[in-house]
Design a protein around this nucleic acid. Structure first.
Lengths: 229, 229
DNA sequence: ATGCTAATTTTGGTATACCAAAAACGGTTG
DNA sequence: CAACCGTTTTTGGTATACCAAAATTAGCAT
């Protein structure tokens, strides 16, 4: 019937809940409870869980309830390192492959980001930020890279969101974005590469900082129970 | 019931069929036919298909039978580029993080590869080759990287196998592996990085060569042949 | 023949029923 | 009170049944 399959919709919904924190890290996702709560059968819910598992947002355990991923700081840092590498590669490829239309779009988005930087709330601003990076990667014209990068973006949504919510160095971010745009326009691979990697390094520092500050060894959160309405 | 779920077993079996060419690229995988043929129900088969889809070996289409992926030369090249980048990153991280035990294991495997290079058949030799690269990546101690790299290894199994079956530059491969081992031992990031990337560049060339030789229009139904024994 | 439409079949998507393994529970016994 | 063991409950895994799109085919009118 639908363009979008039930399992995908459920996956979207669950992903949203996980990323926004409504579904706490470590929470159990029992097939029966959740499917009943959402008024669907176990089959599509099950499939949705697999989707999220392949994205790294949910952990599957043999013969045991799936659980919302609760990545350690080390795991997040590992993800960031890989993502950094992918994005750097994407930017370098984009220098070669970006079309004029894409360049215009990137430029326009950057301009928009400059305009709204004072007024936009965290979520809106962050969405634009994400889109900026996604556009650059898309300009690489390497489908595999785009997919894999998108997967890491999804997995790192929450940490990145927290980092972006610290308004503190929005100025630096915007400046670096500007440098990246300039590098792309002039096809300056070295500049773009350096800026992307510097950009990421700051992100790693910020996120590390946030998690240190929270000082939580939330490796073992107390038994979480979850009931769907 | 078992440690290994039915769906996973089916996925393994299907993957094997796909990689060995028993299931031709472009072939339809109908849920009913395949599940009946294997004497299992549609449910686990369905799940197996999703697993393979997430690995890029099978393409899902809305309301249409899944089909065995038939990657174009361009797509394979794209995959190789990403894999190259991941492997390079892995090697660089391994320079910092590799343990003595891991170093010994890598060294031993390289020695073994040298020993059997004259006598081993294509499959055995290739398995050792794959394992060598996997070990290096594992020494990065970055789990995300290891997983993602493994996914690309799986996706590129067949093209790489074809390339490795050309015995022609086994000598160069062994020499480069030796250089990588040496670089790891001396923690020479620049050397390791350069060698890995050169290694990969040759691989890209070889694979490109193979696919060019086969004539390109395999965009349609797949030309089936060859099993290098 | 040709183009169109209506019945039919095929297909993937979803719901439900069933099973066996694993926890959770409870009572008994030292 | 604690440790053990049998029973019940809960859980994920699998099989089967059902449904509605979509593709295919059959028939018809031109």
């Amino acid at each position: 019937m639908p363009e979008r399959t039930l399992a995908e919709q459920i996956a979207d919904s669950l992903r949203r809940d996980i990323l926004l924190g409504t579904l706490a890290p470590g929470a159990l996702i029992k097939e029966r409870d959740n499917s009943a709560g959402r008024g669907v059968s176990r089959t599509p819910l099950r499939e949705a869980i697999r989707i999220l598992a392949s994205e790294g947002l949910v952990i599957l355990r043999p013969s045991r309830s799936p659980v919302v991923a609760n990545p350690s700081q080390q795991e997040i840092t590992d993800d960031l390192i890989v993502m950094n590498t992918l994005e750097s590669l994407g930017a370098r490829l984009a220098c070669v492959n970006v079309t004029d239309e894409e360049m215009d779009e990137i430029d326009a988005l950057h301009e928009k980001m400059l305009r709204i930087s004072d007024t936009a709330d965290a979520v809106d601003y962050f969405e634009v930020d994400m889109r900026f990076h996604r556009l650059i990667t898309a300009a690489s014209h390497n489908l595999s890279l785009i997919d894999t990068h998108a997967a890491y973006m999804a997995r790192l949504w929450r940490p990145r969101f927290l980092a972006a919510s610290l308004r503190r160095d929005r100025a630096r971010v915007l400046q670096q974005h500007g440098a990246i745009v300039k590098g792309l326009k002039t096809r300056d691979v070295a500049l773009v590469s350096a800026e992307v990697e510097s950009h990421m390094r700051h992100l790693v520092l910020n996120i590390t900082d946030i998690y240190d500050r929270k000082e939580h060894p939330n490796q073992k959160v107390a038994p979480q129970e979850e009931a769907a309405t």
